[in-house]
Write a protein that binds this DNA or RNA. Structure first.
Lengths: 224, 224
DNA sequence: ACCTGAACACCGTTCAAGT
DNA sequence: ACCTGAACACCGTTCAAGT
């Protein structure tokens, strides 16, 4: 009986599967950041060799895309009451917050566009909100691209692992800007450096919503 | 004499310097993309060992930032005639085009904010253009951040080394969207997929300019 | 101060061989 | 079909030793 229990206590080698691989990858991502989600590290976690993973995943890029797709399923559903602008802002903020929880993920989200069910769901919700605001159809389609791009990039910028050095250098450069060679920077130095991330993001989203609402797309739109 | 010539034909080892290192890095970037700009590859090009480079450059991230700073100096100066909106659009498009010439650079530009002379010059020019459009000062400062972020991200998205797979998958998913579960996507599928990159970018910039012009920043802007 | 070789601790991906 | 070990061709960074 004891031996039967110990046989079952920890299944020594659960069979590999795409789902299991992605789940393990999310685990490493959460604990150690995307940079550590490597084929070798993942294989180690799954008690196998890196080569075995290639049965389920084409390459590292596809693995990262699968992770993103998975996590898109965890973002809170859009609120159903309130002004459409506020709800749009809240949905995109939830998306950005999710990306910020996983160091490094946002940067990969910028390149590896997902195409899974959860991504489509997000696009669907965004289109519905813009429709509610009576934004013309063509502007809705191009607009959500802009909104998602902005939300993703904002997360990517804040997801830098050690942003200290870069930012300090930039802040110093702006503060010390020569009044004669860079008069505008000198005059604006305060505003260039102020604003909490959340304030900036909220303003950015309102800028986009206003712009999308008021800017017509070109009449001839050739296919890509 | 022949021996003297051959001694001089190719200076076997020019002394290392930060400038020489960055110049060689730009060469590799241009030929082979940023991914190949590694300490080891660069050392090989300079006929030395990778360890020697650490005298002039703190790490790979700083090297990439230095490259970007350098290339910012090559973008065309802003045109001095025409509507301020058009000139703004042209300056930002020149910036994006420069990033697109160097595969991989845009992605690093998103994270490694430069702080060199050329970056400050670009910011100065952007501030001047928004001032010409009578955009209120606080909106100018926050606005250029949005504009640069958009121009950089747009380049990063198009700089993917093999975007084929991802994009095809997304296009298929959008076209095949189920009309009952994703009615908005089904209805908008044409507009979601059309538009040449240049058209989209131009529209995006106009959206931002319009939005920045019409959206006030919050009255209390706490420091970061 | 600058430069070097060697070492440490990693990578992605492929492939022949096994089951 | 799936899994494996080993190999190939790389990485960034540190450090003791030399000049």
């Amino acid at each position: 009986m004891a031996s039967e229990m110990s046989r079952r206590e920890r299944p020594a080698k659960p069979a590999l599967s795409r789902g299991g691989i992605v789940a393990a990858a999310v685990g490493i991502l959460r604990e150690e950041g995307l940079r550590k989600v490597t084929m070798r590290r993942l294989a180690q976690e799954l008690d196998t060799g890196a080569a075995s993973l290639y049965v389920y995943v084409r390459n590292t890029a596809e693995l990262h895309a699968a992770i993103l797709d998975e996590l898109l399923g965890t973002i809170a559903p859009p609120p159903s009451e309130g002004d459409w602008r506020d709800r749009l802002e809240r949905l995109l903020t939830a998306y950005t917050s999710m990306l910020l929880e996983y160091p490094g993920l946002a940067l990969s989200a910028l390149v590896a566009r997902p195409s899974g069910e959860n991504y489509l769901g997000l696009v669907e919700n965004l289109l519905a909100l813009l429709a509610e605001g009576d934004v013309p159809p063509e502007q809705r389609a191009w607009g959500i691209d802009l909104l998602l791009q902005y939300a993703t990039t904002t997360a990517a910028e804040h997801a830098d692992e050690e942003p200290q050095g870069d930012w300090d250098a930039l802040a110093r450069a702006v503060r010390d800007a020569d009044e004669t060679t860079h008069p505008r920077i000198a005059a604006h130095s305060a505003d260039l450096l102020t604003g909490q991330p959340a304030q900036r993001m909220s303003w950015g989203l309102r800028v986009l919503i206003t712009g999308i609402t008021h800017t017509a797309v070109p009449p001839e739109r050739n296919p890509t």
